[in-house]
């Protein structure tokens, strides 16, 4: 098969493709706009390489971040055809099927973070949250003893945080998070993931302090359980396991004794139940539809309630259609919880 001859092997498929790029330079622009760049693209080219081409050959003012160009550093998160992902690992040809207008790829900055210029957004709020939630190991080894001996860590423990340490802080999940759109203070999925990773590490000593912070306002109970973050994650990390993990842990530690976390969730749910608006604003547009939601998620949610005597987060729902049905289900479900909690309190 190596003898097929050079000529045939290098025949590259090539075509003209338009990149509709979000432009905004706060120094001169009153509001954002889009620029269209039509360039020749061969098969095998990534969105980042196409952007590089545009910057080098067409318009050097187009601004975006990129560094490793290999999906490792997390610099190049942006929205391609509406979905947050890494430009450097996204094939242009694979995006063609996802274009709303045929042959036009839309490229926009990540959401939920302050814009800086064009495709560049401000990462500082995310770093501030990492600090706020103490996303580090506060070691049980005194500083003076460090380097002398290693901790013994079991395979089981390692596996608990192995996947979480894949996170490259690209903020794609942050950009897609439904709650963040409404509440900028919300802890955000990547920080929940990192917090979980620290909490299950036996070398750490500030588990309780971190958890106490996580169950406060804007913390783990605000999550709507919509799974957007996990579906988006560029490293396929099961972020929801981390979120569940923190919640379970919170209930274990304080659950029946101190229901502040549960109460908080309840209040939040109330809010949603009453002001259906919030649901529409914060719950994602889901293709699954209400039927799927009711069938697949509510039973699990109710199970969780029974088990933990706490209201689950509202499940996802397609906002325009079926919101009434959802509210109905939701009301019923909350009644359940209340009954359940009352009987427990007795």
């Amino acid at each position: 098969m190596h003898m097929t001859g050079a000529a045939e092997q290098h025949k590259e498929e090539k075509r003209d493709i338009t990149f509709r790029v979000f432009r905004f330079n706060p120094q001169v622009d009153i509001k954002p706009y889009f620029d269209d760049y039509t360039i020749p693209v061969e098969r095998g080219i990534t969105v980042l390489r196409a952007l590089n081409y545009i910057k080098e050959h067409v318009d050097p003012t187009v601004s975006f971040r990129a560094f490793c160009q290999a999906g490792i550093c997390g610099s190049c998160g942006m929205r391609v055809n509406g979905i947050s992902k890494l430009a450097c690992t996204t094939q242009v040809w694979e995006e063609l099927d996802r274009c709303k207008e045929p042959g036009i790829l839309k490229v926009e900055p990540l959401r939920n973070m302050p814009p800086i210029k064009d495709l560049i957004v401000d990462m500082d709020p995310l770093v501030d949250k990492m600090k706020h939630y103490m996303n580090w190991i506060d070691s049980s080894m005194p500083e003076s003893e460090m380097g002398k001996k290693e901790f013994l860590v079991s395979e089981d423990e390692f596996l608990k945080y192995d996947k979480a340490t894949d996170c490259i802080l690209c903020a794609s999940c942050v950009s897609e998070c439904t709650i963040l759109r409404a509440h900028k203070e919300y802890v955000s999925p990547a920080v929940l993931l990192k917090s979980y990773r620290m909490n299950v590490d036996s070398r750490d000593t500030i588990h309780d302090t971190r958890l106490a912070e996580l169950v406060k306002d804007h913390g783990v109970w605000d999550c709507t359980h919509c799974y957007r973050c996990q579906e988006t994650c560029v490293k396929s990390i099961p972020i929801m396991d981390a979120i569940h993990g923190i919640r379970e842990n919170a209930l274990e530690v304080r659950g029946t004794k101190d229901t502040s976390g549960a109460k908080h969730a309840e209040a939040f749910m109330d809010d949603i139940a009453k002001k259906g608006k919030l649901v529409e604003a914060t719950l994602p547009f889901r293709t699954n539809g209400v039927l799927w939601t009711v069938k697949n998620l509510l039973p699990m949610a109710v199970k969780m309630i029974m088990k933990r005597r706490t209201p689950p987060p509202p499940p996802m729902v397609k906002p325009s259609k079926g919101i009434k049905a959802f509210r109905e289900e939701f009301r019923e479900m909350t009644e359940h919880v209340k009954d359940d909690q009352q009987s427990h309190n007795k």
């Binding site: 003893e145 460090m146 380097g147 290693e150 013994l152 395979e155 070398r203 750490d204």
Partner: peptide, 16 residues
Amino acid sequence: RELDNIGTPWSRLDDN
């Protein structure tokens, strides 16, 4: 070892 002490998730051998 110092990196281990401050949280680097090293892969482990059977004896941990």
